[in-house]
Design a protein around this nucleic acid. Structure first.
Lengths: 113, 113
DNA sequence: AATATAATTGAACAACTATTCAACTATGAG
DNA sequence: CTCATAGTTGAATAGTTGTTCAATTATATT
């Protein structure tokens, strides 16, 4: 990329550089936020915070197709934010992570300012 | 969408429905997480947590073009997560929100489990 | 005034993502 | 066994997003 000829600032850069986390950590972080960065998934997480529910319930609650719900739940499962449990003909989903609620609350504080 | 004929579950739905936040709130939340859901922007936020820096510094630190940095900083500014201050030829950026650090820490706890 | 540097901007492109649709699996009821 | 319901899956599509490139603005230096 471009060169930076300003000597003052390369000092700042070399001071901050060692304080940066591993790239792998940064990717994990941004991947986590990517999962949260969708209104359907936020709705699902919020709903599951209130109660375990099966796919049909969630579809009815959010007023979207069961297929769409199922696709998004798979993403939440993959991210380890939700877990599935089969009960007869239904599959019940529940939250799988206690951090989510805390992060949602903090983020809510932010957007409500 | 599809009908849900299971009477048990429509009860759950009608119980959870009033507890769901406004759609506008949910969109604000997911928009916030969308901004966090990019590794370049996470790097920028992390860097700015350590020190104010100008665009060239950030480009050097992250090893990407100044243009790419500028584009992403604009998104952070729009989201009110960063603010810009012109000093002579340079534009110095700083964090603009105290929630970000907290949320980053909580998210880090999550991904490090 | 002329030049070099810092930063921003918009267009273009490639990569990614969410929803829809249709097909499929599996379970429970009759 | 047969049928209806619940849920999953993969392909297709439309929309979004991040980076690059080139052009532009603005400031400092000589």
């Amino acid at each position: 990329m471009e060169k930076n000829l300003n000597n003052e600032n390369t000092d700042i850069v070399s001071k901050v550089k060692p304080k940066m986390p591993e790239m792998s950590t940064l990717y994990e972080l941004s991947d986590f936020f990517k999962v949260m960065g969708d209104s359907t998934r936020i709705q699902l997480l919020w709903a599951l915070e209130e109660s375990e529910m099966c796919v049909g319930d969630l579809a009815q609650l959010l007023n979207i197709s069961k297929s769409a719900v199922s696709h998004q739940l798979k993403i939440l499962r993959t991210a380890k934010l939700a877990r599935a449990q089969k009960k007869g003909k239904n599959v019940y989903y529940a939250l799988n992570d206690h951090h989510v609620k805390l992060i949602l609350e903090k983020a809510l504080e932010h957007v409500c300012e």
